Computed example of a mutant assay.
Amino acid sequence: MGIKSFQGARKQQQKEVEHIPVRVSDYMTKDLITFKPEQTVEDVIHKLISFKISGGPVVNDNDELVGIISEGDCLKQISDCRYYNMPMEQHTVEARMIKDVETIDGNMNIFDAANKFLESKRRRFPIVSNGKLVGQISQKDILKAALKLKGHSWK
């Protein structure tokens, strides 16, 4: 009857931890609700409400990321339309979206991504590969990943 040393068992545990997925791409959402620059802001509001999301990426016909639109951008549109007494139907996503979009690398460690969220105060980051939108990581995705990793080494 052999006895395993405490160190031996520990080394085995270390090997298992290394195989746990901790990259952004392992937890990102790939099936995204996206918007087109020519869509109306009113259409965006309907989709935000029906899909229970707070914003989403804006892509061109080649699935290239060209912006992001959020609830806040839509609220600004509503406020401006009310203030200037203008109909909302004629305003497009392109006029309201944020065009200078910060992306995140799909190979980034989720804990580094968590720090990026804290520093930037953003709710979501798109992931682009070869110029195309491939996914999005949100603060909630990071929280889900942390729960899955609970009990493992946080290396």
Rank of each mutant, 00 (worst) to 15 (best):
Q7K: 13
A9D: 12
K11D: 13
K11R: 15
Q12H: 15
E16G: 11
E18D: 15
H19V: 08
P21G: 12
P21W: 09
V24N: 00
S25L: 09
S25W: 03
S25I: 11
D26K: 01
D26G: 14
D26M: 06
D26A: 15
M28Y: 03
T29L: 10
K30C: 03
D31S: 11
I33C: 10
T34C: 13
F35G: 02
K36H: 15
K36Y: 11
P37R: 06
Q39L: 08
T40H: 06
T40L: 01
V41H: 01
D43W: 11
I45M: 12
K47D: 14
L48T: 08
L48K: 02
I49R: 13
I49C: 05
F51E: 15
K52V: 01
I53H: 01
I53M: 09
S54V: 10
S54T: 14
S54P: 04
S54M: 05
G56S: 08
G56Q: 07
G56H: 07
P57T: 09
V58W: 05
V59F: 09
V59K: 05
N60K: 09
N60E: 06
D61Y: 06
N62W: 05
D63V: 00
L65P: 02
L65W: 04
V66F: 05
V66M: 03
V66R: 00
G67V: 04
I68A: 01
I69D: 00
S70P: 05
E71M: 14
G72S: 12
D73Q: 13
L75D: 00
L75R: 08
I78K: 04
I78R: 02
S79C: 04
S79W: 07
C81V: 04
N85G: 11
N85M: 12
N85Y: 09
N85W: 07
M86G: 02
E89R: 12
E89L: 04
H91L: 11
V93S: 01
V93G: 00
E94T: 02
A95Y: 10
A95G: 07
A95R: 09
R96Q: 14
K99D: 12
D100V: 08
E102Q: 15
E102R: 10
E102H: 07
I104K: 05
I104P: 01
I104T: 08
G106E: 08
G106P: 08
N109T: 09
F111I: 13
K116N: 06
K116C: 03
F117S: 06
L118R: 14
E119F: 11
K121G: 10
K121F: 10
R123A: 01
F125L: 10
F125H: 05
I127D: 00
V128D: 02
S129N: 12
G131Y: 07
G131V: 07
G131L: 06
L133F: 04
L133W: 02
I137F: 06
D141C: 10
K144I: 15
A145I: 03
A146R: 02
A146Q: 06
L147A: 14
K150F: 14
H152K: 12
H152A: 13
H152L: 04
S153N: 13
K155P: 00
